Amino acid sequence: MFPDIQPLTAHMRRLRARLRGLVRDERGYSTETVVVTALLVALAIIVIGIIATKVTDKARLINLG
């Protein structure tokens, strides 16, 4: 092997080992995902409620006769 790239290959080996460890460690990921998804759904429901209220209020102001 080329002596100039040995430090680079050693560094790459360490990086691969570290990434493998991160990929395999999925503790708490599903819980975190569920909580974030629930918060986003709640926020979406609130926003839809606000928009629906504003649209309904504006529709009531339309004079049809």
Rank of each mutant, 00 (worst) to 15 (best):
60 R>W: 00
3 P>R: 11
28 G>M: 03
49 G>V: 04
41 V>F: 01
37 T>K: 11
6 Q>Y: 02
65 G>Q: 08
46 I>V: 15
35 V>Q: 10
25 D>H: 01
62 I>Y: 04
25 D>V: 01
35 V>H: 09
48 I>T: 12
8 L>R: 04
64 L>N: 15
51 I>Y: 04
4 D>K: 05
18 R>H: 07
55 V>H: 04
19 L>V: 10
31 T>E: 15
56 T>C: 00
61 L>Y: 00
41 V>P: 03
27 R>S: 08
40 L>N: 10
7 P>H: 00
65 G>N: 09
47 V>Y: 04
47 V>L: 12
7 P>I: 06
55 V>W: 02
26 E>I: 05
44 A>L: 13
9 T>K: 09
9 T>N: 08
1 M>F: 13
64 L>C: 09
52 A>W: 02
57 D>P: 06
64 L>E: 13
16 R>W: 08
6 Q>T: 12
43 L>V: 14
61 L>W: 01
63 N>A: 07
55 V>G: 07
7 P>G: 04
1 M>N: 12
59 A>C: 09
64 L>D: 11
54 K>C: 11
30 S>M: 05
3 P>V: 08
36 V>K: 11
22 L>K: 04
16 R>F: 09
37 T>E: 09
32 E>W: 15
15 L>V: 14
39 L>W: 02
49 G>T: 07
37 T>V: 09
27 R>A: 08
14 R>C: 07
4 D>F: 05
2 F>S: 14
5 I>C: 10
15 L>M: 15
24 R>G: 09
31 T>M: 10
59 A>V: 14
44 A>N: 11
46 I>W: 02
65 G>P: 03
2 F>H: 13
56 T>Y: 01
12 M>F: 12
8 L>E: 10
44 A>V: 12
25 D>Y: 00
62 I>K: 07
1 M>W: 13
5 I>K: 07
45 I>Y: 05
26 E>Y: 02
29 Y>Q: 05
9 T>F: 08
51 I>S: 02
53 T>E: 01
7 P>D: 06
34 V>L: 14
47 V>T: 10
28 G>I: 02
16 R>V: 13
32 E>M: 13
43 L>N: 09
30 S>V: 05
63 N>T: 14
4 D>T: 06
46 I>E: 03
19 L>P: 00
55 V>A: 11
32 E>G: 15
1 M>Y: 14
53 T>N: 06
15 L>T: 15
24 R>T: 09
24 R>I: 08
6 Q>F: 04
53 T>P: 01
42 A>F: 00
15 L>F: 12
14 R>S: 12
16 R>S: 13
15 L>R: 15
61 L>P: 03
57 D>M: 14
29 Y>E: 07
58 K>W: 03
4 D>V: 05
39 L>I: 04
24 R>P: 00
6 Q>W: 01
42 A>W: 01
4 D>L: 07
21 G>M: 06
46 I>S: 07
64 L>A: 11
20 R>I: 06
27 R>Q: 08
19 L>H: 05
20 R>Q: 10
6 Q>G: 06
42 A>Y: 00
6 Q>P: 06
62 I>A: 08
29 Y>M: 05
31 T>N: 14
